Simulated scan of single mutants.
Amino acid sequence: MAKKASKVAPPHRADSNRSSGSESLSQTLPPARRVAHVWTDQELEWLGQLSDAEIGRRIGLDTSTVASKRIAMGIGAQRKGRRARKWSKKELSLLGKIPDTQIASRFGIPRRKVIIKRQSLGIESPVTKANAKRWTPRVIAMLGKLSDVQVSRKTGISVAAIRSYRSRHSIPPAKPTFRWQPHQVARLGNEPDQTIADDLGIDVSKVRRKRQSLKQK
Results as ranks from 00 to 15, higher is better:
M1C: 09
M1N: 12
A2G: 10
A5F: 06
S6N: 10
V8S: 11
A9P: 02
P10V: 09
P10Q: 12
H12S: 12
R13G: 14
S16G: 12
S16Y: 14
S20N: 15
S24E: 15
S26H: 07
S26V: 09
S26T: 09
S26F: 08
T28C: 09
T28R: 14
P31Y: 08
V35M: 10
V35R: 15
A36P: 15
H37F: 13
H37T: 05
W39A: 06
T40M: 05
Q42E: 15
E43P: 04
L44G: 02
G48I: 07
G48M: 09
D52P: 10
A53C: 02
A53V: 14
E54W: 02
I55K: 05
I55P: 03
I55H: 07
G56H: 10
I59T: 04
I59M: 05
G60I: 09
L61V: 08
L61T: 08
L61K: 09
S64N: 12
S64C: 05
T65I: 09
T65Q: 12
V66I: 11
V66W: 05
A67M: 14
S68W: 06
S68R: 15
R70Y: 07
I71K: 15
I75P: 06
I75Q: 04
G76W: 03
A77M: 13
Q78W: 10
K80W: 04
K80P: 07
G81Q: 06
G81D: 06
R82P: 06
R83N: 08
R85M: 02
R85I: 01
R85G: 00
R85N: 03
W87I: 01
S88K: 05
E91V: 03
L92W: 01
L94C: 07
L94M: 12
L95T: 01
G96Q: 06
D100E: 08
Q102Y: 06
I103C: 00
I103A: 00
S105I: 04
S105P: 00
F107D: 02
G108A: 04
G108N: 09
I109N: 02
P110Y: 06
I116A: 10
K117Q: 11
R118K: 04
R118I: 00
S125M: 04
V127H: 07
A130L: 11
N131L: 06
P137D: 08
R138S: 12
V139R: 12
I140H: 03
A141T: 05
L143Y: 03
L143R: 03
K145C: 03
V149Y: 11
Q150C: 07
Q150M: 10
V151E: 06
S152E: 03
R153A: 12
K154W: 03
I157L: 10
S158Y: 03
A160R: 13
R163T: 14
S164G: 05
R166P: 04
R166S: 15
R166N: 04
R166F: 02
R168M: 11
S170P: 00
I171D: 02
P172I: 10
A174R: 04
F178N: 03
Q181T: 13
P182G: 08
H183E: 14
Q184Y: 08
V185M: 04
V185Y: 00
R187P: 02
R187Y: 02
L188T: 01
L188D: 00
N190K: 15
T195F: 05
I196R: 04
A197P: 11
D198R: 15
I202V: 15
I202R: 03
D203Q: 11
S205N: 08
S205Y: 06
V207G: 01
R209P: 00
K210P: 00
R211P: 01
Q212N: 10
Q212S: 11
K217D: 08
